[in-house]
Design a protein around this nucleic acid. Structure first.
Ligand SMILES: [Zn+2]
Length: 664
DNA sequence: GCAAGGTC
């Protein structure tokens, strides 16, 4: 068919892969055409000529001049305003050209608010909104696409407006507060530094900072436990009883009672339990597992997965879904994988006898299924890191369609008759390995069961009291754990979480040591400034409130103008206050950036506020004094010995250790 | 130059 027809229906897809799928669903033999080195397709469908052409995500973005504050912005071609998005120019030009001779437009972008904006902007700038329709599909399968094509709706203005409001709210908050921070510094120092704040990045930074401060102020408290060595038949076991005591005397008293008690095997419980196979990956799970197993950072995983997707080896990776719909032909995917993963395919056939049942996860996505291998064989040579990720995705997919493992657990309940206390010994054995063979990245205990019978006598060999230190309930984060926190806090999307974490590193708000994330002094001060002057931006509630507003727009109860006006009003109040304290903020930031002299804390780069200590080290000192009293009461030890014990514990926070080093 | 969101 002619690549330059006239009077056709222009079908706009969000990306090239989707355009191709749509064309193939509408025709068995779509004509592939190319312009500006971008492929598009011409098909005849139900007697009409359709041209299916791709965008590349957003081709338009918000732009405003460099004034401050700034509340007016316009949509501009992305390639004009962002040097790193020059590649969008060819898609822009293609859609502009193809719009000229179209008589109808169909927005066939992903069915979510961003997809609605992407298609709307293209039709608005190049085509005719009065001749536009929306196509709604939830999977890029032939049936879904054909069904969607025959049930076209008018343009979904509520969704478009919700998307536009999202762009504007983020832009207004982000650009203005970022400029406020930078201008505060430059007005005091005449120096330009890049600083930023935003709806997603700022609550994420604050979470790291608050977590870190709590962790570095941690002081373990002593607890006492009773350990019992017992003998059943010829075998000895060591039990650490669950009960904990604050005071050594209490623990000793309890230990004496145990020592005098008789003991017996009260019950032997043997159970068979499935160890459920995992669901297929969504992007967050893939980033978590690739981090845990391969040591890759979340953003790197997203980039590699994108390449595998473009190579045609895996399905679309930026998805939240853990489900694979029945329209996906699992059998032929497994057959296809045989070329590159002969052993794994052999294993999965063996385990399942060729009957594959996907273990569907609970999470879903409006536009895409879970990540799975397409079954295409590797044609171009993959780098080793890419190959490892592909193998991980393949193994996870095969595990998800295989069978649950079966575990046998044995619980031996030991009862100390005279004190009426029970404890247990547990053993577990793998009866059927199932998916564990395909996805061998969990250490699952496989032990022999014990030959112990109910009513058997238990000999108490020895009883002792041991001091333990309580474990902290705050843990430092690595990138993957931070990304998972963002996910559960509903911050960012699949495509942006990894990138936003990298932004916090690029701003030098965060640093990393052996994989563990620490906030820098600059990060800590940025958090202080945001908490004092732009409180809304410090909370994840800004996102949930925004989403409520977007839902109101979706329900037709609110408008873009209303939401934008509300944002501006809130921000204006903050900015009025900011103007009063601008120099103070600038000085505070300039100091930590090394642009002004100041008196540093004896132990860190923050400003000394209490004699020669920053407020965090001062807090550490106060807390240590209080905790010392508790320790003394419980252990009856000398201060010096207590400090030594606290200092030598791995769990003690750094601020606390700094203060102890001062006192010893 | 600065956000967050698409996609490469
Ligand atoms: Zn300090």
């Amino acid at each position: 068919m002619n690549c330059y027809p006239k009077n056709y229906i222009l079908v706009i897809a969000e990306k090239s892969k989707a355009a191709k799928k749509i064309a193939e669903a509408l025709s068995d033999k779509p004509t592939t055409c190319k312009k500006y080195s971008v492929s598009y397709w011409v098909v005849n469908y139900k007697g009409k000529v359709n041209v299916v052409a791709p965008a590349a995500g957003h081709l338009f973005n918000l732009y405003g001049d460099s004034s401050f504050p700034i509340f007016s912005m316009d949509w501009k071609p992305l390639w004009e305003i962002d040097d790193s998005a020059k590649y969008t120019k060819k898609y822009y030009n293609l859609l502009k050209d193809l719009s000229k001779y179209a008589i109808e437009y169909i927005n066939a972008c992903d069915y979510d608010i961003e997809g609605s904006v992407i298609g709307y902007m293209i039709i608005k700038h190049f085509g005719d909104l009065k001749k536009a329709k929306r196509m709604k599909f939830s999977a890029l399968t032939k049936q879904d696409i054909q069904k969607a094509y025959s049930n076209l709706s008018p343009l979904d203005y509520n969704m478009i407006n919700a998307g536009i409001a999202r762009h504007k709210v983020d832009w207004i908050w982000g650009i203005n507060v970022s400029r406020a921070l930078m201008l505060a510094v430059s007005s005091v120092t005449k120096k330009r530094v890049t600083l930023s704040a935003g709806r997603v990045q700022s609550p994420t930074l604050i979470h790291v900072v608050e977590n870190e401060i709590a962790r570095e102020l941690y002081i373990p408290l002593p607890v006492y436990r009773v350990r019992v060595k017992i003998k059943i038949g010829n075998e000895t076991f060591s039990l650490s009883l669950n009960r904990t005591f604050e005071y050594k005397e209490e623990a000793q008293e309890f230990a004496n009672k145990i020592k005098k008690s008789r003991a017996v095997v009260d019950e032997v419980r043997i159970e068979e339990k499935p160890l459920t196979r995992p669901s297929p990956f969504n992007l967050g799970d893939l980033q978590a597992e690739a981090g845990r197993i391969l040591g890759y950072s979340p953003y790197y995983v997203e980039r590699l997965a994108e390449e595998l997707y473009l190579d045609g080896l895996i399905s679309y990776p930026r998805t939240n879904s853990q489900k694979i719909p029945p329209s996906v032909d699992i059998k032929s995917i497994v057959n296809g994988l045989e070329a590159n993963f002969k052993n794994l395919v052999g294993l999965v056939r063996n385990i399942t006898k060729g009957e594959y049942i996907v273990r569907q996860g609970s999470k879903d996505d409006p536009a895409h299924p879970a990540i799975y291998p397409t079954g295409n064989r590797i044609t171009e040579k993959l780098g080793i890191k890419q190959y490892k990720l592909f193998e991980l995705i393949t193994r996870r997919f095969l595990a998800s369609i295989s069978r649950d493992a079966i575990m046998i657990t044995q619980k031996i309940i030991i009862r100390f008759k005279d004190v009426d206390i029970s404890d247990e010994i547990t053993r577990q054995k793998i009866k059927f390995k199932g998916w564990l063979l395909l996805y061998p990245y969990h250490s699952v205990k496989d032990e022999e069961l014990l030959d112990v019978k109910e009513g058997e006598e238990v000999k108490i060999e020895s009883v002792s009291v041991k001091m333990d230190l309580a474990k902290p309930d705050v843990k430092r984060y690595n990138k993957v754990q931070l990304l998972k926190w963002m996910e559960t806090s509903n911050l960012g999307t699949e495509a942006t979480r990894g990138k936003i974490i990298e932004t916090l590193f690029n701003r030098k708000y965060l640093s990393q040591k052996r994989g563990t994330i620490y906030p820098t002094s600059l990060g800590i001060v940025i958090v202080e400034v945001l908490k004092d002057y732009f409180k809304d931006l410090t909370s994840i509630e800004l996102t949930s409130k925004m989403e409520e507003k977007l839902n109101e727009i979706l329900d037709g109860k609110e408008t873009v103008e209303g939401v934008v006006a509300e944002t501006i009003n809130t921000l204006r109040i903050y900015l009025d206050n900011y103007n009063k304290y601008k120099d103070q903020i600038g000085i505070k930031l300039a100091k930590i950036l090394g642009l002004m002299k100041y008196k540093k804390c004896k132990f860190c780069d923050l400003e000394a506020e209490y004699d020669n200590l920053c407020k965090y080290h001062y807090n550490a000192y106060m807390k240590l004094k209080e905790t010392l009293k508790v320790w003394k009461e419980r252990t009856k030890l000398e201060d010096k010995d207590i400090l030594k014990k606290i200092y030598s514990s791995k769990t003690t926070g750094k601020y606390i250790k700094d203060m102890i080093s001062e006192m010893m």
